[in-house]
Simulated assay, not measured.
Amino acid sequence: MTSPTAPRPAMGDGLPQRSAREVTRLTVALLLTAAVLDLLLTERLSLLFDLVFVSLCVGGALVVRYSERLGIALLPPLSMAGVVLLLAISRPDAIADAGDGVVQATATGLSGHGAVLALGYGACAALMVLRRPQE
């Protein structure tokens, strides 16, 4: 039986904890891999990319060291913007119309995946709050 004053373990305590730098590198690498695979399969960013994005946001929030949580807080919007910008430069037809410029293709790509971005970012933020050590 546990003592009523004993602190409750935080969410994600059973997982191996990684530095924000490691989590960021792995997340970006896996997200770029998912984008390439999605383009090979469907020639556009589709549900596959969206599911991988949300999964990586949740996974990153769970395995980052709590003391380095701020390093991962901006990962969802920056990683999504980075992938969309790379596609806007190299393959604008994958996220927008083929004739769109870089700025227009980036805006179209971000707006097309805005709900997924909000879901991933919200899940990441919520898990960071839930992982707060209880006193």
Rank of each mutant, 00 (worst) to 15 (best):
T2P: 02
P4K: 09
P4W: 05
P7T: 05
P9D: 07
A10Q: 10
D13Q: 12
D13K: 10
D13H: 15
G14E: 14
P16I: 13
P16K: 14
R18Y: 13
S19Y: 04
S19K: 08
S19I: 04
S19G: 14
S19H: 11
A20N: 10
A20R: 12
E22V: 07
V23C: 04
T24V: 09
L26K: 04
L26W: 06
L31D: 00
T33K: 07
A34C: 08
A35H: 04
V36K: 10
L37F: 13
D38V: 01
R44G: 05
R44C: 06
R44I: 12
L45T: 05
L45R: 02
S46R: 13
S46P: 03
L48W: 04
F49M: 04
L51I: 07
V52I: 15
F53T: 04
F53N: 00
L56C: 06
C57Q: 03
V58S: 01
V58L: 09
G60V: 04
V64Y: 00
S67F: 08
R69F: 01
G71V: 05
G71L: 02
G71P: 11
L74K: 00
L74R: 03
L74H: 02
P76G: 09
P76V: 14
P77G: 13
S79E: 03
S79D: 03
V83A: 00
V84A: 12
L85P: 00
L85I: 15
L86Q: 11
A88R: 01
S90Y: 15
R91F: 14
A96W: 00
A96L: 06
D97Y: 14
A98M: 10
V103Q: 04
Q104C: 06
L110W: 02
S111F: 12
G112R: 01
A115M: 11
G120I: 02
G120V: 04
G122D: 08
A123M: 12
A123D: 01
A126I: 10
L127S: 01
R132T: 13
Q134D: 13
E135N: 08
